[in-house]
């Protein structure tokens, strides 16, 4: 057996599974988004579903909301994760506990975190009760609205809570692989602590940070259960809107759901390209 055919044989099962499920699934979604559904007598593909989706004000507002959620969550989580990673490189009392908690958090499913966050920060949640006991508020209505709110603060808080550990772990692994040497060298060459960070450490951390951020952005953009639990009635996050359209008993709404899925996939592809670039410069793939 030649090397080539051996490699092909080794890859075949994985490619078969992903091709059969993932690519075919995407293809089917694409077909249906063009309103090609022979079972329902639709055999003339057209772009009506895309027109309907893109001209509906609901879709654009949902798209805006989802982009906002993903951008804000990723930016805040990435910044805090950098700080946390730098902190965890140093020794301080309780370091073991913090690193345990960070890993613990990684294993908690999003849906559990979302429910916990709801109980914590809603207007009648634990914080509101503490504020009431401290005499800061007279009732729930005085507590800032952090869930079902127009700025999706509760959703962003949850993603920051959940993704901060994820990015931190990736950064720590990268930093560990780099060792302390570069930074120390820079310091001995007269760089200030800030210069050493900005000119040496940060550029070294950046590829890992970018790759992790792309993953986090994609997740925060496309997750369903978190906005379902913490989101407002309107506008809905894009995945919630798409799922609702897909479950509309009016069949006409279904191609629109598929069109939304395709548009979401398109945004995902852009992220994939970004990730691939970041990963390549990191030499990890």
């Amino acid at each position: 057996m030649t090397d080539r055919s051996r490699i092909a044989l080794m890859l075949a099962p994985a490619l078969l599974v992903l091709g059969g499920l993932f690519l075919t699934g995407l293809g089917l979604t694409l077909l249906r988004s063009f309103r090609y559904m022979p079972a329902l007598g639709l055999t003339e593909p057209d772009l009506a579903a895309y027109t309907a989706v893109l001209t509906a004000p609901g879709f654009l507002r949902s798209l805006g909301l989802s982009l906002w959620i993903a951008t804000a969550s990723t930016a805040i989580a990435a910044l805090l994760a950098m700080a946390a990673a730098l902190l965890l490189r140093q020794s301080f009392p309780g370091r073991a506990l913090v690193s345990f908690l960070i890993q613990l958090n990684l294993t908690v499913p999003h849906i559990v975190g979302a429910i916990g966050m709801l109980y914590l920060v809603s207007q009648s949640g634990s914080f509101a009760r503490l504020a009431k006991a401290a005499g800061l508020i007279a009732g729930p209505q005085d507590f800032p609205a952090l869930t079902q709110d127009p700025w999706a603060i509760g959703i962003i808080l949850l993603y920051v809570w959940k993704e901060l550990p994820f990015i931190t772990l990736i950064l720590l692994a990268n930093l560990q692989a780099l060792g302390e040497d570069h930074e120390a060298t820079a310091r001995t060459l007269g760089a200030t602590r800030w210069q050493a960070f900005a000119h040496v450490l940060l550029p070294l951390m950046l590829p890992g940070l970018m790759a992790a951020s792309a993953l986090v952005f994609a997740f925060a953009f496309g997750a369903y259960e978190v906005p379902l639990i913490l989101g407002a009635h309107a506008p809905k996050a894009l995945p919630v809107l798409a799922w609702q359209a897909a479950n509309d008993t009016d069949l006409a709404a279904r191609p629109e759901a598929m069109a939304m899925a395709v548009l979401i996939a398109g945004i995902g592809l852009v992220l994939l390209a970004l990730y691939a670039r970041a990963a390549r410069s990191r030499h990890v793939d």
Partner: peptide, 12 residues
């Protein structure tokens, strides 16, 4: 791993 689940779920 990167494409949002909602993009794949209907076709799947």
């Amino acid at each position: 791993a990167i494409l949002p689940g909602i993009a794949v779920v209907f076709g799947l």
